[in-house]
């Protein structure tokens, strides 16, 4: 099934269509492989990935990490690539009550500030980078 977002006219920043199969998005959003080094830097950057606001992770140079969510260490052995991709694209498809923001969804959001309106939090490319990085995290904390 294609996500409903896709019916909107495609603007440059609009999320592109993707297919959800079970609890996964099996195919890369860009068709290519992400870069784990870039992914690490997105996860570590508080204003870009925002991940460490809530999660802790094996990124020792970032001292201020969150405790609202599971430690990201071992994320790559707990989930498959497709599961990680859906989780980041739209975690509410995995857990409807989740507080994890939908990184690649622009519909169904209320009162988004003007500077972010209509834009997903991360681009397709950035999400592939993050997925590639998470897949390298094999060891639990």
């Amino acid at each position: 099934m294609l996500a409903l977002t896709m019916t909107a006219p495609a603007l440059a920043m609009d999320p592109q269509p993707y297919a959800v199969v079970g609890d996964t998005i099996p195919l890369s959003l860009t068709g290519g492989r992400g870069d784990p080094a870039k992914g690490r830097s997105i996860v570590a950057t508080r204003t870009q990935g925002l991940c460490l606001l809530c999660h802790s992770g094996p990124i020792p140079e970032e001292r201020l990490q969150g405790t609202l969510a599971p430690n990201l260490a071992g994320a790559g052995s707990r989930s498959t690539e497709g599961q990680l991709r859906l989780r980041i694209v739209d975690a509410s498809r995995v857990n409807p009550d989740t507080i994890m923001p939908p990184y690649y969804r622009t519909d169904g959001l209320e009162r988004v500030s003007k500077s972010f309106a209509g834009k997903p939090i991360l681009t397709a490319e950035e999400i592939e980078d993050v997925v590639a990085y998470l897949l390298t995290l094999r060891e639990a904390p």
């Binding site: 606001l53 990490q65 969150g66 609202l68 509410s92 507080i99 209320e110 972010f116 834009k119 939090i121």
Partner: peptide, 28 residues
């Protein structure tokens, strides 16, 4: 209690459900 913004969070998500935990370094 209403979710708002690009991050799709409500005040209650942080202040009722997660108070005392740390958002980055800051206790909520």
């Amino acid at each position: 209690e209403r979710r708002q913004g690009q991050l799709n969070l409500s005040c209650a998500n942080c202040h009722d459900d997660n108070s005392g935990k740390r958002l980055a370094g800051s206790p909520i």
